[in-house]
Simulated scan of single mutants.
Amino acid sequence: MNKLDYKPFPKFIKEFVEQNIKVDWGDLAWALSNHWLDVSSIAELAEVLALRNEYLYTSLAIARINNDEPALKTLVFQQAQKYTVPDELVRERWMLLAVRWFTFS
């Protein structure tokens, strides 16, 4: 089966996502892989998730300050590998969010 790229237009805004779902690492990896949020929004959401892990938070902050997109993506994808919710459920959550987005915008 071919991987489908889901690319909403316009991209979601961070505030809309925060208001509608409780974001986790798997969600951020999904949004990065499918271009649903800009990298700046991903970085801000990732920093909130990383608050309990000083090393991770610092690494994300440094990547963000340096505009180091590859480092940011690597950190998000590494954390998402620890995420236990199946990809199908993450995708379903974002599809429902897309329906809300298109009725919102």
Rank of each mutant, 00 (worst) to 15 (best):
R91Y: 04
P8Y: 03
W36E: 15
Y83N: 15
F16E: 02
E44G: 06
N34V: 01
N66F: 02
D24C: 07
R93C: 06
L51H: 07
W36T: 15
D5S: 14
D24R: 12
L56F: 09
S105H: 10
E15A: 10
K82R: 14
I13V: 13
I42R: 04
F102C: 10
K3P: 04
E47H: 03
A63R: 03
S105C: 12
A50H: 03
V76R: 11
V85P: 01
I65F: 05
W36V: 14
L75M: 08
Y83H: 14
M1F: 05
V99K: 15
T103C: 07
R93V: 01
Q79N: 14
A43Q: 01
K11I: 11
K22G: 03
A63N: 06
N34Y: 09
W25V: 06
S59Y: 02
F102I: 08
V76K: 08
E15D: 12
K7F: 03
D24A: 12
K73I: 14
W30K: 00
Y55C: 10
R64C: 02
A50L: 07
F77R: 09
V39R: 08
A29W: 04
K73F: 07
Q78Y: 03
T103A: 12
V76N: 10
V23N: 00
W30L: 12
L49N: 01
P86M: 13
